[in-house]
Protein backbone atom coordinates (compact mmCIF):
# COMPACT_ATOMS: atom_id res chain seq x y z
CA UNK A 1 0.00 0.00 0.00
CA UNK A 2 1.26 3.45 -0.84
CA UNK A 3 1.68 6.08 1.80
CA UNK A 4 2.30 9.81 1.72
CA UNK A 5 2.78 12.61 4.18
CA UNK A 6 1.24 16.05 4.24
CA UNK A 7 2.17 19.10 6.30
CA UNK A 8 -0.44 20.90 8.37
CA UNK A 9 -0.40 23.88 6.02
CA UNK A 10 -0.84 21.69 3.00
CA UNK A 11 -3.66 19.80 4.66
CA UNK A 12 -5.53 23.08 5.00
CA UNK A 13 -4.86 23.95 1.37
CA UNK A 14 -5.90 20.46 0.26
CA UNK A 15 -9.17 20.64 2.16
CA UNK A 16 -9.90 24.07 0.72
CA UNK A 17 -9.34 22.57 -2.74
CA UNK A 18 -11.57 19.59 -1.92
CA UNK A 19 -14.33 21.93 -0.79
CA UNK A 20 -14.04 23.74 -4.10
CA UNK A 21 -14.13 20.62 -6.28
CA UNK A 22 -16.49 18.38 -4.31
CA UNK A 23 -19.22 18.58 -1.75
CA UNK A 24 -17.03 18.25 1.33
CA UNK A 25 -18.64 16.78 4.45
CA UNK A 26 -16.53 17.07 7.58
CA UNK A 27 -16.78 17.29 11.36
CA UNK A 28 -17.80 20.71 12.64
CA UNK A 29 -17.94 21.89 16.24
CA UNK A 30 -21.51 23.03 16.51
CA UNK A 31 -21.81 23.87 20.20
CA UNK A 32 -20.07 23.08 23.41
CA UNK A 33 -19.81 19.25 23.32
CA UNK A 34 -21.80 18.86 20.12
CA UNK A 35 -20.00 18.06 16.90
CA UNK A 36 -21.72 17.10 13.67
CA UNK A 37 -20.76 16.14 10.14
CA UNK A 38 -21.84 18.93 7.80
CA UNK A 39 -21.07 20.31 4.35
CA UNK A 40 -18.25 22.83 4.74
CA UNK A 41 -16.81 25.48 2.49
CA UNK A 42 -13.22 25.05 3.61
CA UNK A 43 -10.66 23.96 6.15
CA UNK A 44 -11.43 26.79 8.56
CA UNK A 45 -14.81 25.28 9.45
CA UNK A 46 -13.48 21.80 10.18
CA UNK A 47 -12.70 20.50 13.65
CA UNK A 48 -10.20 17.70 13.22
CA UNK A 49 -9.61 17.37 16.95
CA UNK A 50 -13.08 15.93 17.53
CA UNK A 51 -13.59 12.55 19.07
CA UNK A 52 -16.84 10.82 18.10
CA UNK A 53 -19.32 13.24 16.50
CA UNK A 54 -22.57 13.54 18.45
CA UNK A 55 -24.57 12.08 15.57
CA UNK A 56 -22.87 9.53 13.34
CA UNK A 57 -21.93 10.55 9.80
CA UNK A 58 -24.29 7.96 8.26
CA UNK A 59 -26.64 10.85 7.46
CA UNK A 60 -24.65 11.75 4.39
CA UNK A 61 -25.29 8.35 2.79
CA UNK A 62 -28.66 7.81 4.41
CA UNK A 63 -30.08 11.26 5.17
CA UNK A 64 -32.53 11.78 8.01
CA UNK A 65 -34.96 13.09 5.40
CA UNK A 66 -34.41 12.26 1.74
CA UNK A 67 -36.62 13.26 -1.16
CA UNK A 68 -37.23 10.24 -3.39
CA UNK A 69 -39.34 11.67 -6.21
CA UNK A 70 -41.89 14.31 -7.08
CA UNK A 71 -45.33 13.44 -8.36
CA UNK A 72 -48.16 15.28 -9.98
CA UNK A 73 -51.54 14.13 -11.16
CA UNK A 74 -53.62 15.61 -13.94
CA UNK A 75 -56.55 14.00 -15.74
CA UNK A 76 -55.87 10.28 -15.50
CA UNK A 77 -52.12 10.72 -15.63
CA UNK A 78 -49.50 10.57 -12.91
CA UNK A 79 -46.19 12.17 -13.70
CA UNK A 80 -43.11 11.33 -11.72
CA UNK A 81 -39.89 13.30 -11.60
CA UNK A 82 -36.62 12.28 -10.00
CA UNK A 83 -35.46 14.17 -6.95
CA UNK A 84 -32.10 15.86 -7.16
CA UNK A 85 -29.17 13.81 -6.03
CA UNK A 86 -25.94 15.33 -4.82
CA UNK A 87 -22.92 14.88 -7.03
CA UNK A 88 -19.40 13.78 -6.15
CA UNK A 89 -18.60 14.19 -2.49
CA UNK A 90 -15.82 13.59 -0.02
CA UNK A 91 -16.75 12.42 3.46
CA UNK A 92 -13.71 13.56 5.38
CA UNK A 93 -12.36 12.73 8.81
CA UNK A 94 -14.29 9.54 9.50
CA UNK A 95 -13.30 7.75 12.68
CA UNK A 96 -12.61 4.03 12.24
CA UNK A 97 -15.82 2.97 14.05
CA UNK A 98 -17.89 5.09 11.70
CA UNK A 99 -16.20 3.57 8.66
CA UNK A 100 -17.18 0.19 10.06
CA UNK A 101 -20.65 1.57 10.55
CA UNK A 102 -20.85 2.24 6.83
CA UNK A 103 -19.64 -1.29 6.14
CA UNK A 104 -22.53 -2.51 8.29
CA UNK A 105 -25.02 -0.46 6.25
CA UNK A 106 -23.68 -1.62 2.88
CA UNK A 107 -25.27 -5.09 2.83
CA UNK A 108 -28.59 -3.60 3.94
CA UNK A 109 -28.88 -1.05 1.14
CA UNK A 110 -26.36 -2.30 -1.34
CA UNK A 111 -26.56 -6.08 -1.08
CA UNK A 112 -29.21 -8.50 -2.29
CA UNK A 113 -31.55 -5.54 -2.38
CA UNK A 114 -30.14 -2.53 -4.21
CA UNK A 115 -31.39 0.74 -2.82
CA UNK A 116 -30.82 3.23 -5.64
CA UNK A 117 -30.67 6.25 -3.33
CA UNK A 118 -28.05 4.84 -0.99
CA UNK A 119 -26.17 3.24 -3.83
CA UNK A 120 -25.87 6.49 -5.78
CA UNK A 121 -24.59 8.41 -2.78
CA UNK A 122 -22.24 5.62 -1.78
CA UNK A 123 -20.80 5.44 -5.30
CA UNK A 124 -20.35 9.20 -5.50
CA UNK A 125 -18.72 9.59 -2.09
CA UNK A 126 -15.04 9.15 -1.35
CA UNK A 127 -14.40 8.12 2.25
CA UNK A 128 -11.39 9.61 4.01
CA UNK A 129 -10.72 8.12 7.42
CA UNK A 130 -8.86 9.68 10.34
CA UNK A 131 -7.13 7.60 13.01
CA UNK A 132 -8.17 8.45 16.54
CA UNK A 133 -5.70 10.20 18.80
CA UNK A 134 -7.75 9.79 21.95
CA UNK A 135 -10.07 7.13 23.33
CA UNK A 136 -13.31 8.52 24.76
CA UNK A 137 -14.58 7.07 27.99
CA UNK A 138 -17.47 5.22 26.31
CA UNK A 139 -15.57 3.85 23.31
CA UNK A 140 -15.32 0.06 22.98
CA UNK A 141 -14.57 -0.49 19.28
CA UNK A 142 -11.76 -2.94 20.08
CA UNK A 143 -14.35 -5.23 21.67
CA UNK A 144 -16.37 -5.22 18.46
CA UNK A 145 -13.58 -6.19 16.11
CA UNK A 146 -12.37 -2.69 15.28
CA UNK A 147 -9.67 -0.42 16.55
CA UNK A 148 -8.87 3.29 16.79
CA UNK A 149 -6.39 3.20 13.92
CA UNK A 150 -8.11 0.55 11.85
CA UNK A 151 -9.27 2.40 8.73
CA UNK A 152 -10.35 -0.61 6.65
CA UNK A 153 -13.26 0.34 4.40
CA UNK A 154 -12.12 3.89 3.72
CA UNK A 155 -10.45 5.01 0.50
CA UNK A 156 -7.74 6.92 2.37
CA UNK A 157 -6.67 6.89 5.98
CA UNK A 158 -5.04 9.88 7.65
CA UNK A 159 -3.03 9.56 10.83
CA UNK A 160 -1.53 12.42 12.79
CA UNK A 161 2.28 12.15 12.81
CA UNK A 162 5.13 14.47 13.73
CA UNK A 163 4.84 17.59 11.64
CA UNK A 164 1.53 16.77 9.99
CA UNK A 165 -0.37 13.75 8.82
CA UNK A 166 0.43 10.45 7.18
CA UNK A 167 -1.87 9.25 4.42
CA UNK A 168 -2.34 5.63 3.48
CA UNK A 169 -3.95 4.76 0.19
CA UNK A 170 -6.41 1.92 0.72
CA UNK A 171 -8.28 1.74 -2.61
CA UNK A 172 -7.76 2.69 -6.26
CA UNK A 173 -10.30 5.46 -5.77
CA UNK A 174 -8.19 6.82 -2.93
CA UNK A 175 -5.14 6.62 -5.14
CA UNK A 176 -6.89 8.68 -7.82
CA UNK A 177 -7.79 11.36 -5.32
CA UNK A 178 -4.22 11.64 -4.10
CA UNK A 179 -2.94 11.82 -7.67
CA UNK A 180 -5.32 14.59 -8.51
CA UNK A 181 -3.90 16.75 -5.71
CA UNK A 182 -0.35 15.46 -5.69
CA UNK A 183 1.12 18.93 -5.24
CA UNK A 184 0.09 18.79 -1.56
CA UNK A 185 1.63 15.42 -0.72
CA UNK A 186 5.14 14.10 -0.20
CA UNK A 187 6.06 10.48 -0.73
CA UNK A 188 6.62 8.63 2.54
CA UNK A 189 10.28 8.08 1.73
CA UNK A 190 11.39 7.01 5.19
CA UNK A 191 8.43 4.63 5.51
CA UNK A 192 7.31 6.20 8.75
CA UNK A 193 3.54 6.43 8.22
CA UNK A 194 2.55 2.81 8.74
CA UNK A 195 4.83 2.21 11.76
CA UNK A 196 3.62 5.47 13.31
CA UNK A 197 0.00 4.38 12.92
CA UNK A 198 0.73 0.94 14.33
CA UNK A 199 2.55 2.51 17.25
CA UNK A 200 -0.41 4.81 17.93
CA UNK A 201 -2.80 1.87 17.72
CA UNK A 202 -0.79 -0.03 20.33
CA UNK A 203 -0.68 2.95 22.62
CA UNK A 204 -4.41 3.62 22.38
CA UNK A 205 -5.32 -0.03 22.86
CA UNK A 206 -4.41 0.37 26.52
CA UNK A 207 -6.69 3.38 26.99
CA UNK A 208 -10.06 1.63 26.77
CA UNK A 209 -11.81 1.79 30.10
CA UNK A 210 -14.23 -1.00 29.45
CA UNK A 211 -14.01 -4.09 27.27
CA UNK A 212 -16.91 -6.38 26.53
CA UNK A 213 -16.98 -9.98 25.45
CA UNK A 214 -19.68 -11.10 23.04
CA UNK A 215 -18.36 -14.65 22.71
CA UNK A 216 -21.24 -17.10 22.59
CA UNK A 217 -23.82 -14.39 23.09
CA UNK A 218 -25.48 -14.71 19.69
CA UNK A 219 -25.76 -18.45 20.16
CA UNK A 220 -27.37 -17.91 23.56
CA UNK A 221 -29.81 -15.38 22.14
CA UNK A 222 -30.63 -17.77 19.29
CA UNK A 223 -32.06 -20.08 21.93
CA UNK A 224 -33.54 -17.50 24.31
CA UNK A 225 -35.97 -15.00 22.86
CA UNK A 226 -37.99 -14.59 26.04
CA UNK A 227 -35.95 -13.40 29.00
CA UNK A 228 -37.30 -11.58 32.06
CA UNK A 229 -34.22 -9.37 31.71
CA UNK A 230 -35.78 -7.40 28.82
CA UNK A 231 -38.82 -6.46 30.84
CA UNK A 232 -36.65 -5.21 33.72
CA UNK A 233 -34.38 -3.23 31.41
CA UNK A 234 -37.26 -1.66 29.51
CA UNK A 235 -38.89 -0.20 32.62
CA UNK A 236 -36.61 2.81 32.57
CA UNK A 237 -36.39 3.31 28.79
CA UNK A 238 -38.07 6.49 27.57
CA UNK A 239 -38.86 5.12 24.14
CA UNK A 240 -37.13 8.05 22.51
CA UNK A 241 -35.14 8.12 19.30
CA UNK A 242 -31.77 9.12 20.70
CA UNK A 243 -29.94 5.79 20.61
CA UNK A 244 -31.14 4.76 17.17
CA UNK A 245 -30.78 8.17 15.53
CA UNK A 246 -27.22 8.79 16.63
CA UNK A 247 -26.09 5.19 15.95
CA UNK A 248 -23.93 4.60 12.85
CA UNK A 249 -25.57 1.27 12.05
CA UNK A 250 -29.30 1.82 12.71
CA UNK A 251 -31.11 2.15 9.43
CA UNK A 252 -34.88 1.98 9.83
CA UNK A 253 -36.92 4.44 7.82
CA UNK A 254 -40.47 5.45 7.05
CA UNK A 255 -41.88 6.72 3.77
CA UNK A 256 -44.36 9.57 3.55
CA UNK A 257 -45.87 11.99 1.05
CA UNK A 258 -46.25 15.73 1.35
CA UNK A 259 -48.80 17.28 -0.92
CA UNK A 260 -50.38 20.58 0.05
CA UNK A 261 -53.08 20.38 -2.64
CA UNK A 262 -53.52 16.62 -2.77
CA UNK A 263 -52.54 16.57 -6.44
CA UNK A 264 -48.83 17.08 -6.56
CA UNK A 265 -46.08 16.77 -4.07
CA UNK A 266 -43.03 14.87 -2.96
CA UNK A 267 -42.44 11.42 -1.59
CA UNK A 268 -39.68 11.26 0.99
CA UNK A 269 -38.25 8.87 3.44
CA UNK A 270 -37.01 9.67 6.92
CA UNK A 271 -35.33 7.90 9.78
CA UNK A 272 -37.62 5.97 12.03
CA UNK A 273 -36.87 4.17 15.26
CA UNK A 274 -37.78 0.75 16.59
CA UNK A 275 -37.84 2.37 20.04
CA UNK A 276 -40.92 4.46 19.16
CA UNK A 277 -44.22 2.95 20.27
CA UNK A 278 -45.90 3.48 16.91
CA UNK A 279 -43.03 2.04 14.85
CA UNK A 280 -44.75 -1.32 14.45
CA UNK A 281 -48.31 -0.08 14.87
CA UNK A 282 -50.39 -1.25 11.94
CA UNK A 283 -53.41 0.24 10.25
CA UNK A 284 -56.27 -0.83 12.46
CA UNK A 285 -54.25 -0.32 15.59
CA UNK A 286 -52.66 -3.72 16.22
CA UNK A 287 -49.11 -3.48 17.49
CA UNK A 288 -46.98 -6.64 17.45
CA UNK A 289 -44.50 -4.94 19.78
CA UNK A 290 -47.02 -3.63 22.25
CA UNK A 291 -44.73 -2.58 25.09
CA UNK A 292 -41.27 -1.11 25.50
CA UNK A 293 -40.02 -4.55 26.47
CA UNK A 294 -40.43 -5.88 22.92
CA UNK A 295 -38.92 -2.72 21.48
CA UNK A 296 -35.83 -2.74 23.67
CA UNK A 297 -35.37 -6.43 22.99
CA UNK A 298 -35.64 -5.80 19.28
CA UNK A 299 -32.97 -3.14 19.35
CA UNK A 300 -30.46 -5.25 21.20
CA UNK A 301 -31.24 -8.42 19.28
CA UNK A 302 -30.70 -6.44 16.10
CA UNK A 303 -27.31 -5.31 17.32
CA UNK A 304 -26.17 -8.61 18.77
CA UNK A 305 -27.96 -11.25 16.71
CA UNK A 306 -30.10 -10.28 13.68
CA UNK A 307 -27.37 -8.37 11.88
CA UNK A 308 -25.07 -11.31 12.35
CA UNK A 309 -27.76 -13.74 11.21
CA UNK A 310 -28.31 -11.77 8.05
CA UNK A 311 -24.88 -10.47 7.12
CA UNK A 312 -22.45 -12.14 9.44
CA UNK A 313 -21.50 -8.69 10.75
CA UNK A 314 -21.85 -7.17 14.21
CA UNK A 315 -24.71 -4.70 14.35
CA UNK A 316 -22.74 -2.57 16.81
CA UNK A 317 -19.33 -1.11 16.08
CA UNK A 318 -18.63 0.06 19.61
CA UNK A 319 -18.67 3.80 18.96
CA UNK A 320 -20.20 4.39 22.40
CA UNK A 321 -22.60 7.12 21.27
CA UNK A 322 -25.73 5.52 22.72
CA UNK A 323 -23.84 4.90 25.96
CA UNK A 324 -22.94 8.57 26.24
CA UNK A 325 -26.30 10.03 25.33
CA UNK A 326 -28.97 7.69 26.69
CA UNK A 327 -30.72 9.75 29.39
CA UNK A 328 -31.41 6.67 31.51
CA UNK A 329 -28.06 4.90 31.21
CA UNK A 330 -29.12 2.01 29.00
CA UNK A 331 -25.53 1.03 28.30
CA UNK A 332 -25.01 -1.66 25.67
CA UNK A 333 -21.70 -2.66 27.28
CA UNK A 334 -23.48 -3.32 30.55
CA UNK A 335 -26.24 -5.16 28.72
CA UNK A 336 -23.73 -7.44 27.04
CA UNK A 337 -22.16 -8.16 30.43
CA UNK A 338 -25.58 -8.71 32.03
CA UNK A 339 -26.67 -11.08 29.26
CA UNK A 340 -23.46 -13.07 29.65
CA UNK A 341 -24.33 -13.33 33.33
CA UNK A 342 -27.88 -14.43 32.52
CA UNK A 343 -26.45 -17.01 30.08
CA UNK A 344 -24.15 -18.40 32.78
CA UNK A 345 -27.14 -19.07 35.02
CA UNK A 346 -29.32 -20.69 32.35
Amino acid sequence: MKAYTITRDNLGAWLDALARDYTLIAPVREEESVSLFKPVSGFAEINLGYTNSTVSPKGWLFPQTEEMFFFSTGGDQITLADAQTPGPAVLFGLRPCDIKGILALDPVFNGAYQDCYYQKRRQDTILVGLSCTRVERDCFCTSMGGGPTDGGGADLLLTEIDGGYGIEVLTPRGEKLVNRYQQYFDADRENRVIPAREELGKKLAGHFTRNVDTTGLKEFLDQHFELPYWGELARRCLGCGICTYICPTCHCFDIFDQSPDGESGVRSRCWDSCMFSHFTRMAGGHNPRPTQKERVRNRFLHKLKYHRDRYNLDGCVGCGRCVTRCPVNIDIRQIIADLQEVARHE
Binding site: L36, L238, C240, G241, Y245, S273, H278, P327
Partner: peptide, 24 residues
Protein backbone atom coordinates in the same frame (compact mmCIF):
# COMPACT_ATOMS: atom_id res chain seq x y z
CA UNK B 1 -32.07 23.17 12.71
CA UNK B 2 -30.00 20.56 14.53
CA UNK B 3 -32.95 19.04 16.38
CA UNK B 4 -33.13 15.32 15.63
CA UNK B 5 -36.81 15.06 16.45
CA UNK B 6 -35.92 12.14 18.67
CA UNK B 7 -38.71 13.26 21.02
CA UNK B 8 -36.69 12.50 24.12
CA UNK B 9 -37.66 15.95 25.44
CA UNK B 10 -41.32 15.11 25.03
CA UNK B 11 -41.08 11.59 26.35
CA UNK B 12 -39.33 12.63 29.54
CA UNK B 13 -41.62 15.59 30.21
CA UNK B 14 -44.10 15.31 33.09
CA UNK B 15 -46.36 17.82 31.34
CA UNK B 16 -46.51 15.74 28.15
CA UNK B 17 -49.09 13.11 28.94
CA UNK B 18 -51.42 13.02 25.94
CA UNK B 19 -52.56 9.53 25.02
CA UNK B 20 -51.87 10.33 21.41
CA UNK B 21 -49.38 13.11 20.82
CA UNK B 22 -50.01 15.55 17.93
CA UNK B 23 -46.53 14.83 16.63
CA UNK B 24 -47.37 11.15 16.21
Amino acid sequence: SRCLRCYACRNVCPACTCRECVFD
